[in-house]
Simulated scan of single mutants.
Amino acid sequence: MSSVDIIALDCITLVEIFGGLLINGFITTIKILDWWECQKMKPLDKLFLGLGLSRFLTMCLYVFNIINRFFSLNVYQIKVLDWTLNTICLFLDFSSLWFSMWLSVLYYVKVAIFKSNILIRIKLRLSELVPYMILSSIFISLVSGFLFAYNFSSDLDIMIPYSNMDHNQSEEPYLEFAIPSYIFGHFIPFIIVSISTFFLLQTILVHMRHISSNASSITTPRMNAHHTAIH
C-alpha cells in the first residue's frame, strides 16, 4: 500500500469509527441515565448496556491504535502492553458478539408463543437468567481472548495494513489457540444469532398475518395479544 492509500483508508476508517462512537456512546449514556433515575434496569436493557459499552470501548481502542501508529508510539513493542491490549481487543470483540447473540435469543423468546412448559418457565424467568448470561459472556470472552493473546507473539492491531505485517512468522503454533477462540468468540454467537433471527422474523410474520386477516376484530383480546407481542 502507498502512503496515499493508507491515509485515505485511515480517513474513511476514522469517519466510521467516530460514527460508531457517537451511536454506541449515545446508547450507553441513555441506558446509564435511565438506570440512574429509576435505580432499576430491565433485563434487555442490561444486555443493551453491555453491548453498547463493549462496542464503544472497541471504537476507542481503534482510535488509540491509529494514534499509536500516527505518532509512532510503538506501544505494541512493550511485551506487557502488547499482551494486555491484545487481550482487551479480543475480549471486547467477543463480548459484543455474545451480547448481540443473547439479545437476539431473548427477543425471540419474548415474542414467540410457546406450548412447552420448559420454554414457558424460561420466558417467565428472563430477569433471573440475564445476569448469568452476562457473566457467562464475560467469562467466555475473557478466557478465549486471554488464551489466544498470551500465546500470540505479534500484535493484533487490525488497523495495521496486512502488507506491513510479518509474513515470515509461522502461524501453525497458534492454530490450537486461534481455532477455539474463533469457535467460542465468533462461530457459536454467529450461528445462534442467525437461527434466532430467522425464527424471530418468522414469528413476527405470523403475527402480522394474524393481524391482517383479522383486521375487523383488531380490538379483541386475541389480536391485542399479537399486537403486544410484536412491540
Rank of each mutant, 00 (worst) to 15 (best):
G50L: 04
I66A: 10
S136G: 07
H186F: 12
H186D: 09
Q169V: 03
I158H: 04
S154G: 02
F71D: 03
F94C: 03
S3E: 11
M223G: 01
L53R: 03
F56R: 10
L126V: 14
L22S: 15
M223Q: 13
M165F: 01
V15H: 10
P131E: 12
A229T: 07
T220K: 08
P173K: 06
H231M: 15
S3K: 12
P189K: 05
E16W: 10
D5H: 07
S144P: 00
S216D: 12
S217M: 12
I120V: 11
T58V: 03
G19Q: 10
S127N: 15
G25H: 15
E171A: 03
M59C: 15
E171N: 09
Q169A: 09
R209T: 08
L200W: 04
F152L: 01
S163D: 02
I138Q: 02
I120M: 09
M223V: 02
H231Y: 12
N68M: 10
N224V: 01
I88G: 08
S154F: 08
Y62P: 00
N168C: 08
L47R: 07
T13N: 15
P221S: 07
L92E: 05
Q39C: 13
I12H: 08
S72G: 06
F91D: 01
S2L: 05
K31C: 13
S3N: 08
D45T: 10
N24M: 15
N214M: 13
F190K: 09
K110D: 02
N24P: 14
V75R: 03
M1F: 02
S54T: 13
G52N: 09
A229R: 08
T58R: 04
I179L: 11
F152W: 02
I7D: 08
M41H: 05
I78K: 01
I12D: 07
F71Q: 04
I118N: 06
F146L: 03
I32K: 15
I32D: 14
P131H: 12
M59W: 11
H167Q: 12
I78S: 03
Y182A: 12
S2Q: 02
V206K: 05
L51I: 07
F48Q: 09
I191S: 06
I211V: 10
L135C: 01
N65S: 08
P221K: 09
